[in-house]
Design a protein around this nucleic acid. Structure first.
Lengths: 232, 232
DNA sequence: CAGTGGTCTAGACCACAGC
DNA sequence: CTGTGGTCTAGACCACTGC
């Protein structure tokens, strides 16, 4: 049970913040003072403080000191991929179409390309227990050398499709989440008769230089998806 | 333009990983080797590696070495609070009700309390430009000493309500996001006539000891909310 | 056994805040 | 000027791995 000293320092100060002994804006004791208090070297004290900084408890201003950070109450970590979520998993996919198209104005703007650039469009339906549960479209600006193998596309998540052609770490991504009522073509594709809500997740992929390299739109039947997030 | 050495080390190795010169599973050069390569002390090298660990690029195994981590492709950071999102902001709220109730079975289970415990229920409508855009319910297991001042409740987000009574850092939270069709009572409350989808966000608050201290359910009209997430 | 990462010390020099 | 945090060195000892 003998923790490293730097963890002890981290835990002690964290406890003081959680118990409001140190309030947002308060000055954390200077490093030299903590050195004396714990009989530790400055490197050890700084290691403890570094964790507090990383976890968002404090921030430091050179020449002034370290201060207790006002907590971020609106930040969550969400795990999302098209194939799995907390209440359901895709067990079969159906590839409807792989095609090269010219984007309309809206899509061109969305992909940040000009209207005369070719775009690969991939359309799929996702199933669970034989039931169609989501409609999925991907748009990839055409680049020479992308080897599109249908078998590989069929069951791949968006990052998986892309990481075939580039190093996985260079991917930056963002998602937008919203709800809507399905259009009639989507109702047909997903075999929906009565009223139902869709949860739509738009996924954008960017390369290292922030050039957009893909747009994916997945529309889930409301009953089959729940996204979960936890505070950090 | 003269970066600290440890940042140089971090950037160099990061670049090697992004360019696939170092692939997931590969061994990162040992610290002593990096010391020689950069003419730096071990502390400096370790500071560079620590950033790579924090950002998920590598992981270390004592006695063996540091290895390139396979990237997480499904992790996003989402910013959410009831009052503001990327396409809309609440500019007025209406407090419908503050009451003490006994939970039904479903709610008791959801709040992880027994059915004979009192629960404070707060119901609100959120407006934008005079238009009702969301219906919001909070359930707080009753604790002595919670000072509920209507004026304070009216325009507060859930964490704001709670941080009046406890230190803000001790809050842990999670959210669930899903889509659904509104029930008839909700349609009336939100003044909905035609078909519309709701984006529902359930928010659960926990104290330090992981005891649940609140449940909030906010149902947004689909046209008025979009949640955004970015990869980490 | 030698090599690895994990912890820690006791210094040093710097740039910057604030008096 | 003193005190602060930011960077850095050159050691040290430990526990663990794999030969």
């Amino acid at each position: 049970m003998t923790c490293p000293v730097y963890l002890q320092i981290f835990e002690d100060i964290k406890k003081k913040i959680n118990s409001a002994e140190l309030k947002p804006g308060d000055l954390v004791p200077p490093e030299t003072a903590l050195c004396k208090e714990y009989g530790a070297s400055r490197a050890t004290v700084r290691k403890g403080l570094a964790i507090l900084v990383n976890e968002g408890y404090i921030f430091s201003i050179p020449g002034k000191g370290s201060f207790v950070q006002a907590p971020q109450h609106n930040k969550y970590t969400v795990y999302y991929d098209e194939m799995t979520n907390s209440i359901n998993s895709v067990d079969r996919t159906k590839l409807l179409e792989v095609n090269i198209i010219l984007p309309d104005e809206h899509l061109a703007r969305n992909l940040q390309i000009s209207k005369n650039k070719n775009v690969i469009m991939i359309r799929r339906i996702f199933f669970t227990d034989g039931e169609p549960i989501a409609y999925d479209v991907k748009y990839l600006p055409y680049q020479k050398g992308i080897p599109l193998v249908e078998k590989e596309i069929e069951d791949a998540t968006f990052p998986e499709m892309m990481s075939k052609n580039m190093t996985p770490f260079a991917l930056k991504k963002n998602i937008s989440i919203y709800a809507k009522i399905p259009e009639s073509d989507l109702k047909r594709a997903l075999n929906i008769s009565d009223n139902i809500a869709l949860l739509v997740v738009e996924q954008r992929l960017f390369d290292e230089d922030n050039k957009q390299i893909g747009l994916g739109i997945t529309s889930f039947k409301g009953d089959y998806i729940k996204l979960e997030g936890i505070s950090q």
